[in-house]
Amino acid sequence: MDALKSAGRALIRSPSLAKQSWGGGGRHRKLPENWTDTRETLLEGMLFSLKYLGMTLVEQPKGEELSAAAIKRIVATAKASGKKLQKVTLKVSPRGIILTDNLTNQLIENVSIYRISYCTADKMHDKVFAYIAQSQHNQSLECHAFLCTKRKMAQAVTLTVAQAFKVAFEFWQVSKEEKEKRDKASQEGGDVLGARQDCTPPLKSLVATGNLLDLEETAKAPLSTVSANTTNMDEVPRPQALSGSSVVWELDDGLDEAFSRLAQSRTNPQVLDTGLTAQDMHYAQCLSPVDWDKPDSSGTEQDDLFSF
């Protein structure tokens, strides 16, 4: 819950932080000083300027060897085509990944977070970031790969997607708890209302004896509580940590079903599988986004697919 609360507080303090972009060759504004600060901008989305290598189908939802083989196929196909790589912007948030063309600003792909089953910074092609997700059109699994400016960037994108998945799962947990509370309150309110109706004398007997209905007592009954809980029953509950912020979080049926399955089948359902080692994760978390744009010590960066 700490990640969720800190993310909400950060967004309320400075929503404009989320509009910064990394990996864009110096076009961005001043960047936060450390990885923790940038992680807090996830709610509205972190932007990464990358190059799209392509996509291939895979048979399993996750796995280092599986993704490595898929990336190898994608890279080989991209090299064989001889075409310049498409420059894209990857927007990562707890909602998922939005992929747009840098030149036309046209939407290429919009992947809900619950469809993503794996992401990684490839070991062999260490400047490549990739994720595996279920197609929104059918049940097939797709591996999408992107060329980053350097290994640090690939690791940073991988960690960002993993963190977005974690925050999304926490949102789901909060929403589920809130819905259970509202359902319980609604049920209790309905029981109270039913009890009051059972003990209320029939209207005919009131008229016969000349008694008047006590409207004041009726007004004191917990009807307002019942209506408050039943009027918006169809509205999706939102985490309290975000009250007053500009973010509107809505959970669709697909996300609810997917996270429910994860909660039942996995020990740590909030953790998205990645190909990063503990050492890689520690190294990337210690980086400032400013470091992502620094040239690798191995030599001059080449803006070309064939540089790796």
Results as ranks from 00 to 15, higher is better:
residue 116 I to T: 06
residue 120 T to E: 03
residue 251 L to E: 08
residue 246 S to W: 00
residue 59 E to Q: 12
residue 55 M to W: 04
residue 221 A to H: 00
residue 91 K to D: 11
residue 303 D to H: 10
residue 4 L to T: 03
residue 230 T to I: 05
residue 215 L to M: 04
residue 210 G to P: 08
residue 9 R to V: 12
residue 212 L to A: 06
residue 11 L to D: 04
residue 261 R to A: 02
residue 214 D to M: 05
residue 48 F to D: 06
residue 272 L to Y: 01
residue 127 K to I: 03
residue 215 L to C: 09
residue 150 K to P: 01
residue 287 L to I: 14
residue 181 K to H: 15
residue 48 F to Q: 03
residue 120 T to S: 12
residue 204 K to D: 03
residue 273 D to R: 08
residue 198 D to C: 02
residue 281 M to Q: 04
residue 272 L to E: 01
residue 202 P to W: 05
residue 145 A to P: 14
residue 303 D to I: 05
residue 70 A to Q: 13
residue 16 S to A: 08
residue 136 Q to W: 12
residue 237 P to Q: 08
residue 28 H to Q: 03
residue 124 M to E: 12
residue 31 L to E: 05
residue 81 S to G: 07
residue 220 K to W: 02
residue 119 C to V: 09
residue 306 F to I: 05
residue 183 D to R: 13
residue 83 K to P: 02
residue 285 Q to A: 01
residue 91 K to T: 15
residue 250 E to T: 15
residue 34 N to Q: 15
residue 157 V to F: 06
residue 150 K to E: 11
residue 221 A to K: 05
residue 62 K to M: 06
residue 259 F to A: 02
residue 142 E to W: 12
residue 22 W to R: 03
residue 54 G to D: 05
residue 237 P to E: 00
residue 24 G to W: 14
residue 232 N to S: 05
residue 165 F to M: 01
residue 68 A to E: 11
residue 248 V to S: 07
residue 238 R to S: 08
residue 37 D to M: 12
residue 39 R to L: 13
residue 25 G to M: 07
residue 138 N to W: 14
residue 52 Y to E: 10
residue 57 L to K: 02
residue 70 A to F: 07
residue 77 T to C: 03
residue 111 V to Y: 03
residue 78 A to N: 11
residue 146 F to Q: 03
residue 109 E to P: 03
residue 187 Q to I: 12
residue 122 D to S: 10
residue 226 V to M: 10
residue 285 Q to N: 07
residue 62 K to T: 09
residue 271 V to P: 03
residue 162 A to C: 04
residue 260 S to R: 00
residue 149 T to V: 11
residue 81 S to H: 11
residue 299 G to S: 08
residue 32 P to W: 01
residue 32 P to E: 15
residue 16 S to L: 14
residue 97 I to Y: 06
residue 2 D to M: 07
residue 114 Y to V: 12
residue 161 V to M: 02
residue 273 D to Y: 06
residue 296 D to W: 01
residue 59 E to S: 06
residue 87 K to H: 09
residue 139 Q to I: 13
residue 94 P to G: 06
residue 222 P to H: 08
residue 18 A to Q: 05
residue 58 V to Q: 12
residue 113 I to A: 00
residue 274 T to K: 00
residue 258 A to K: 05
residue 14 S to Y: 06
residue 263 A to K: 03
residue 193 L to R: 12
residue 73 R to F: 10
residue 122 D to L: 05
residue 286 C to P: 08
residue 92 V to K: 07
residue 202 P to E: 05
residue 287 L to C: 01
residue 9 R to M: 13
residue 49 S to T: 11
residue 212 L to K: 06
residue 109 E to Y: 06
residue 229 N to D: 10
residue 193 L to N: 03
residue 259 F to T: 01
residue 4 L to R: 01
residue 245 S to Q: 08
residue 303 D to P: 15
residue 268 N to T: 00
residue 42 L to H: 12
residue 166 K to F: 02
residue 256 D to R: 05
residue 75 V to S: 14
residue 241 A to Q: 11
residue 301 E to I: 06
residue 147 L to M: 07
residue 137 H to K: 14
residue 149 T to K: 12
residue 4 L to P: 02
